[in-house]
Design a protein around this nucleic acid. Structure first.
Lengths: 146, 146
DNA sequence: CTACCTGAGTTGTACTCTGCAACAACCAGG
DNA sequence: CCTGGTTGTTGCAGAGTACAACTCAGGTAG
C-alpha cells in the first residue's frame, strides 16, 4: 500500500532530521543551545508561562526545565515573576536581552532554512508548512510521536 | 511575503519536532537510543560502511561514533570487519541480532507515526513524504540546516 | 629507503542535557 | 488541622557529545 511506504519515508526522514538537529544548532548559534532556543521561543509565543508548561510542551522533566530556566535567568535572558494567584508558581518572561538574542538566533535559523528552501515554489512551501503544523498538532497534547 | 511566513513555520515546526524526538525515542524504544537507532538504520541501508561515513552523515565527531560503535559491538548488534584494501578501515555490518532489533524498533516507530497520520489522505501522505525527502537531500552533503 | 603528510580510529578529559528520586513550599478539600 | 496533589529545586547518576592528543596505516616527495 502506498500510504505505508509514505509513512515509512516520513518516519525515516523526520528521524534523520532530528538526528542532525543538535549539530546544526551548534553551528548556527553556538551561544544558544537547541533546548534554550525552543524554550525562549515558547516564552515569546506564549507571552510568559510556567516552567511546568514548558516541561509538558517539550516532553522534558521538570528538573531539566528548572535547570535550563536557572541558566537562562543567570544569563539575563528571562526573568521570573511571582504569581499573585498562586505562590507556588513563577511566571517566566523574556527580558529585553532575551528578546534580542532570540530574534537574532531565529534570524540565523531562518536564513539557513531559507537557503535550503530557496528553489522551492511558494505553493510547495505553504503546503509543506501546513503538513508540518498538522503533524505536530496532536489532539490531547505533546506526549507522543514527536 | 507568503513564502517567508511558510519558511518561518517550517523552521519552527521542524525545530519543535527535533526537540521532542529524544523523549519520544525513549518512550518508543528504551532499548535503543535515537542515535543508536539511526546508526543501525544507516548500516542496514548502506549494507555496511565505515565509522567515518557515519560521522559525516550525522554530523557527529568521530570519537562519538567510535564509542557508539563500540557499545553496539559489545551488544552484538554490529560487527567490525577489516578492510583488506585498507588496513586502517573497519567496515561495520549489522549482525542478525542487530537486524532483528532494528526491525522491531522500526516497527514501533512506524506504528507511532501511523497512528499519528491515521486520518491523513494518502495523497497528503505521499506529498508530505516527498517534501521531507526533498528537504533532507542537500546537494553536497549533510553539513547544514538539518 | 627515509621523511613527511594525511586519513581512520581510539582514548583521556570535560561539559551539557537529561531523568529519577527526595524534598520544601504551597494550595485545595474534607 | 490533616491529606493529597501541584510547583519547583536539588542531589545524584548516566548518556551523548566535542576537542585534543595519540597510534597505526597509506601515500607521496626527496
Amino acid at each position: 500500500m502506498r500510504a505505508d511506504r509514505a509513512v515509512e519515508t516520513i518516519q525515516r526522514e523526520m528521524t534523520t532530521f532530528a538526528r542532525r538537529a543538535r549539530a546544526s544548532a551548534g553551528r548556527l548559534h553556538p551561544e544558544l543551545s537547541l533546548v534554550s532556543y525552543t524554550l525562549l521561543g515558547h516564552l515569546e509565543e506564549q507571552e510568559g508561562c510556567r516552567a511546568t508548561d514548558l516541561a509538558a510542551h517539550y516532553a522534558l522533566d521538570k528538573s531539566t526545565v528548572s535547570r535550563q530556566v536557572a541558566a537562562l535567568e543567570r544569563a539575563d535572558l528571562i526573568e521570573r515573576r511571582p504569581d499573585p494567584e498562586d505562590h507556588r508558581v513563577q511566571v517566566l518572561h523574556l527580558t529585553a536581552a532575551g528578546r534580542r538574542i532570540l530574534a537574532q538566533v531565529t534570524e540565523n535559523r531562518q536564513a539557513a532554512f531559507r537557503e535550503r528552501l530557496a528553489d522551492w515554489p511558494e505553493e510547495d512551501l505553504t503546503r509543506f508548512a501546513a503538513y508540518l503544523e498538522r503533524y505536530n498538532t496532536w489532539p490531547g497534547g505533546t506526549e507522543d510521536g514527536g
